[in-house]
Structure formats: structure tokens, C-alpha cells
């Protein structure tokens, strides 16, 4: 009997979502930390960096969308704190942690004790934080700790779990979530006029945890082309778009080989077009002076397509391996 032949879809689905949620809360924590630290730096003022970071967080659904009938409250503080601590807020960090715990509970017998302890620490951090009314500085410290736990979770996933089908779905979940986040974030970043102000490329590098690489490689202030190269095209950057996509493609291929079904995804196609994108077009662009120009728009559109392909892939995985919708349609036709 092949290993993993007895894995039920429910277990695999929960592993997949464990992967997605652990990446998702990492992404939102980074986005919120970027915005929060910009707000703290600005000392309450609204600098262009604050404005652009908040705008992207809002577009990505990490900040709650202001409802039409509620009066706009000035200042970003409480919106940010809400997005961190309020579990009822859709897309909030707390909500993501909760979903993460939910998936983890269902696959608990597959996680090592240390792995489980890390998850528990995360939940305790969150519960402890909810009881007090944290200041912005405390919130940043909280995010630092959360990201610390997040990296330990990544470590457990990479180094403590047996490489079976279930594990591959966990990793696929992580890569897929990160791919979708990066593609979506960078695409919107390129399309937002507010990012053309100073300081934006810095926080984009911070958001993608690539600032150290950038500095050591280029030793100069961020410029559009090298930043995009690092974040999109450099396939040695674990926070880069192409890196996620190629890891994802690798596992999908392996799964197709072992589980005997090729994914009906247009991911490879979009990926090919992205690889062929001519970086030269961006060389002479001064990002600050660029009003959303053609090359920027083209790249943004490609990245958006990539994001869509990732979402579709997730749906397909769900239907094919978790709910087995494909099987029923075939069956109905056979009947």
C-alpha cells in the first residue's frame, strides 16, 4: 500500500488550510507592522508613506473597509488596532489566528508537541493582548512576537514533518497563499498613485522581508527596477513571486505524477508570460515621477492574472481532492 493512501480528504484539506492560514497571518502581520511603524514614525501626522501603506492594507482587505453609514474617524490608530486585535473583524489578524487554530485542531495528531506548543503560544499571546487596551508601541511589540512564532511554525513545517502527501498540501497551501499575497500586493502597489511618493519602495521591501537582501546587493536607495527584479523575477528570493510559483509548480507536477491528475490551471501559462516580461522597459523609469505608465500597468496586469490563477488553483484543488466534485460530474454522466 502506498504511503498516505488512507489519508482522508478532511485531514488533507485541514493541512492545506493550516498552510494557507499560517502564511496569511504572517502576511497580515507584516502589512500591519509596516503601516503601524509608519504611523509611529510620523508621530500622528499623515505622511505619504502612512497614506500609501494604509491604502494598500485596505485594498488587500487587511484593514476593515469603512462602512458607508459610519462617520469617518480621523486618525489611523484605532483602525489598525482593530485590524490586529478584533477577532470579529473579517480579515483581522486575530481572526486569521483563530482560523489557523481551527485547522490545526483538526490535524493535531499530525503535529509534533513542540509545533503544537508554538501554536498555543500564539493563541495565548492573542488572548492576553485582547484583555488590555494596547498602545501602538505595544501593538508593534505584539506583531514582532507573532512574527517570531510564525517563523517557528515555518521551521516546524519545513523540518519536523514527514514528507507525505499531506505535508505537500500544507506546503502548497503556504506557497499558494504567499504567491497570491505577493502578486496581489505588488500589482496594486504599481497601480496606486499614492505609492509614487517617497518612502513607498522602502516599505514594500520591508513588507516582503527583502530589505536586507536589497541593501547588501545594491547598497543604495530603493529604485523601481532593482526592487521589482528582487521581488518578482529573482527566483532565489524566498519572498519573490517567481520563487513561489516555481516551488508550487514543482509540487503540483509531483502530485500530478503520484495522484494521477494534472491540474487544470493556467498558472504555467501566466508564469511563462511573466518570465518573458521585458525588464528593460522599466530601466529608465523614475518611480517618483511615473504616473501609472504602460510598462507598470502591463506588469500589474500580469501579476493580477497570476493572483487569479492562484485562487483558481486553490478552488480546483478543493474540488478535485477535498470535495471530489469532479468525481460526481463524471459519475452523473456515466449513469
Amino acid at each position: 500500500m502506498r504511503a498516505g493512501a488512507n489519508l482522508t480528504s478532511r485531514v488533507v484539506e485541514n493541512l492545506f488550510w493550516l498552510g494557507r492560514y499560517s502564511e496569511r497571518f504572517d502576511d497580515s502581520a507584516r502589512m500591519l507592522r509596516v503601516a503601524l511603524s509608519r504611523v509611529v514614525e510620523a508621530g500622528g501626522g499623515k505622511t505619504p508613506a502612512v497614506a500609501s501603506a494604509m491604502e494598500l492594507a485596505l485594498i488587500l482587505g487587511i484593514l476593515p473597509k469603512p462602512e458607508e453609514d459610519t462617520p469617518v474617524v480621523d486618525g489611523s490608530e484605532h483602525v489598525l488596532l482593530e485590524a490586529i486585535y478584533d477577532p470579529k473583524q473579517p480579515g483581522s489578524l486575530s481572526g486569521n489566528i483563530r482560523s489557523l487554530m481551527w485547522s490545526a485542531t483538526h490535524v493535531r495528531e499530525r503535529l509534533s508537541l513542540d509545533h503544537w506548543h508554538s501554536l498555543n503560544r500564539l493563541q495565548r499571546e492573542q488572548q492576553a493582548a485582547q484583555k488590555t487596551h494596547p498602545t501602538l508601541t505595544e501593538a508593534i511589540a505584539f506583531l514582532d512576537r507573532v512574527l517570531g512564532v510564525s517563523s517557528s511554525l515555518t521551521g516546524f513545517a519545513m523540518d519536523n514533518m514527514t514528507r507525505d502527501d499531506g505535508w505537500r498540501f500544507l506546503i502548497i497551501g503556504r506557497r499558494l497563499e504567499r504567491l497570491s499575497f505577493l502578486a496581489n500586493a505588488i500589482s496594486n502597489f504599481l497601480r496606486m498613485p499614492s505609492t509614487r511618493s517617497p518612502g513607498s519602495l522602502e516599505w514594500l521591501l520591508e513588507l516582503t522581508d527583502s530589505i536586507i537582501t536589497y541593501r547588501s546587493r545594491y547598497s543604495r536607495a530603493p529604485e523601481l527596477m532593482p526592487v521589482l527584479y528582487l521581488l518578482v523575477f529573482d527566483d532565489s528570493n524566498p519572498h519573490g513571486v517567481l520563487f513561489q510559483a516555481s516551488v508550487l509548480a514543482h509540487y503540483l507536477e509531483r502530485m500530478a505524477r503520484e495522484l494521477g491528475e494534472k491540474s487544470e490551471s493556467n498558472l504555467p501559462d501566466v508564469l511563462n508570460r511573466l518570465r518573458k516580461f521585458d525588464m528593460e522597459k522599466l530601466v529608465h523609469l523614475e518611480f517618483n515621477e511615473c504616473t501609472i505608465c504602460d510598462p507598470c500597468e502591463q506588469l500589474a496586469a500580469l501579476l493580477k492574472e497570476l493572483d487569479n490563477a492562484a485562487v483558481q488553483l486553490s478552488e480546483w484543488l478543493g474540488m478535485r481532492y477535498f470535495t471530489h466534485v469532479g468525481d460526481v460530474s463524471r459519475q452523473t454522466m456515466a449513469l
Binding site: G4, A5, T8, R10, D165, L259, T323
Partner: peptide, 9 residues
């Protein structure tokens, strides 16, 4: 009645 598994129903 089927059991849903990774390798199918």
C-alpha cells in the same frame, strides 16, 4: 456512500 480520500472516493 463514499469515503473521501486524497486518492479519490
Amino acid at each position: 456512500l463514499y469515503l473521501k480520500t486524497l486518492r479519490g472516493l
